[in-house]
Amino acid sequence: MTAQTHTPRILSRWDAVSMAVFMLAGAAFAVVSVVQSVIRITEVLGGGAVRVFAQFAGTPAQAPIGPDGAPVTVELDTAYLTAPELPIASVAALVLEPVVVAAAVVTVVTCLLLLTWNVLHGRMFSKTNTRLVGTAGIVTFLGVAAAPFFANMGANGAFAWISDRTFDNVVLSADLVQLLTVGFLGALAVTTFTVGDRLQRDTEGLV
């Protein structure tokens, strides 16, 4: 005969309300991300001039910030380029960027919503929750790495098209601190849920 254990209430009413609000906010964030991605894709494929965010490698430029708007030489790090046309590869990259962002956001939000739902129902540590946390961490890491890569590809194509390939400003930037932070937090979360699941199973085996 197997003794059934009763799972104690691990969340207060206020905690449950807070997590429900978090779920609604997450769902809204995912919808907004998809809408913004669709708008950006429509802009890129619309056939007109495309506004592209670009990074510069310390390029000198003239800015009207002197007396009475006199031009002053500044060092340009980032700017928006308006390209009347773009190479096909750049168009593809600029379409993939919002697709990657939207897919990553929807996937991560879905995993977190499922995780929150399980916690609300008293299922804190389990293999399912560990997989959800691991999937969210991996997808976040890939999204943080891939989205800037495609954005850089699109910007470099805009540079080449505008300057007729006479301006060399190929910049492939990656926020290493952000990548390391996402990787560390993802690994920490997976480890926490893995250990918690193991301890819970060991504890249940003693009851």
Results as ranks from 00 to 15, higher is better:
residue 39 I to M: 12
residue 5 T to D: 08
residue 34 V to M: 05
residue 3 A to Q: 13
residue 201 R to H: 14
residue 99 V to R: 06
residue 195 V to E: 04
residue 16 A to M: 02
residue 36 Q to I: 00
residue 203 T to R: 14
residue 170 V to Y: 12
residue 200 Q to W: 04
residue 46 G to H: 06
residue 79 A to W: 08
residue 115 L to G: 10
residue 100 V to H: 08
residue 4 Q to W: 02
residue 92 A to K: 08
residue 164 D to C: 01
residue 180 L to I: 13
residue 27 A to R: 01
residue 108 V to H: 10
residue 10 I to V: 09
residue 104 A to L: 00
residue 151 A to I: 00
residue 163 S to Q: 06
residue 55 Q to H: 09
residue 138 I to P: 08
residue 6 H to E: 12
residue 173 S to Q: 14
residue 58 G to W: 02
residue 193 F to I: 03
residue 56 F to E: 06
residue 200 Q to M: 07
residue 198 R to G: 05
residue 206 L to T: 11
residue 103 A to V: 04
residue 84 P to E: 05
residue 11 L to H: 10
residue 149 F to S: 10
residue 86 L to T: 08
residue 57 A to T: 01
residue 73 T to N: 12
residue 204 E to Q: 08
residue 69 G to L: 00
residue 166 T to Q: 15
residue 107 T to S: 15
residue 79 A to Y: 13
residue 38 V to Y: 10
residue 42 T to L: 06
residue 16 A to I: 00
residue 141 F to C: 04
residue 111 C to L: 03
residue 95 V to C: 11
residue 63 A to Q: 11
residue 191 T to P: 02
residue 114 L to I: 05
residue 11 L to A: 03
residue 125 F to Q: 10
residue 135 T to N: 03
residue 173 S to I: 00
residue 188 L to G: 12
residue 12 S to Y: 01
residue 12 S to C: 00
residue 47 G to V: 01
residue 158 A to N: 09
residue 115 L to F: 15
residue 72 V to I: 02
residue 201 R to I: 00
residue 83 A to R: 08
residue 8 P to F: 00
residue 57 A to D: 15
residue 81 L to Y: 13
residue 10 I to D: 11
residue 103 A to E: 05
residue 90 S to Q: 06
residue 26 G to C: 03
residue 136 A to D: 08
residue 105 V to Q: 12
residue 74 V to N: 12
